[in-house]
Design a protein around this nucleic acid. Structure first.
Lengths: 136, 136
DNA sequence: TATTGTTATACTCTATAACTATA
DNA sequence: TATAGTTATAGAGTATAACAATA
């Protein structure tokens, strides 16, 4: 069968993303976390007392969609909120959240290593810079 | 603000895909076609009388989801169906479909060129092989 | 006036299960 | 028995609009 999409960078970009995100989602199942949850937790860990709106701007997540996400993280005991002023609240990881994220990060690191291992040596170092050029 | 996702190939892969697919979707709006529609039309053009199931297997689209997609393409006059045997039907582009796809392909080509143009010279040639290694 | 957090809702895309008719 | 096409439905994930309270 002829494959008219064989030389399309756009199509391969999409398929590669779907394949890798599917694999990552599988790895995160054991933690009852989705990819967005983890990226938000990482943002909070790296920027204590950050607000939900600031995370949303950084990760391109609508403010409205942050609400149920943060609610779930809080109910799971992973994050806590502390008022900054009358309308903003700073987010932090709980001790449990930090410990849990450490475990998750081990899984993420294995995923990242596995991803890069799939790429032939001569192309590996070019992947991240090329991808970053497409959106950053 | 610290960005803990700066060195993540997985995250950049996802963001790059979202950014590029968003741009492509915008370009296809004028044709009232989605990305899946175009990839299916390309498969039909390159493999006349292919079946819906075969396209689904090649593009990783569930058979069930091919039904409304093909229905729309047929109602738009872009494709036609001809019975192969009692249970299979071969798909073909209509003359209008071929002409329309030629127009769409010009847009796609511009999109692909624009995508590659975003990537610095020294990384450009590595993008497609690296992406293909992640899913093909 | 702009921003934060929030609620409610709609839309797109994809997945699943079941059914029929035929190979 | 396996496959093609189909129907109906469910679930993520994301987007939009509006609101109250505060900066």
């Amino acid at each position: 069968m002829r494959d008219p999409l064989k030389d399309s960078a756009g199509y391969s970009l999409r398929r590669a993303s779907i394949a890798m995100m599917g694999e990552l989602a599988q790895r995160l199942l054991a933690f009852d976390l989705r990819m967005a949850d983890v990226s938000v937790m990482m943002m909070i860990e790296a920027n204590a007392r950050i607000t939900a709106s600031a995370i949303g701007r950084a990760l391109d997540i609508q403010r409205a969609n942050m609400v149920p996400l943060l609610k779930k993280l809080e109910e799971s005991g992973l994050i806590s909120r502390a008022p900054i002023d009358g309308k903003s609240q700073g987010l932090s990881l709980t001790e449990y959240g930090k410990a849990r994220l450490a475990q998750v990060r081990a899984e993420i690191d294995a995923f990242e290593a596995g991803l890069l291992a799939k790429v032939p040596d001569e192309h590996r170092g070019h992947l991240l810079p090329a991808l970053d050029a497409l959106w950053r």
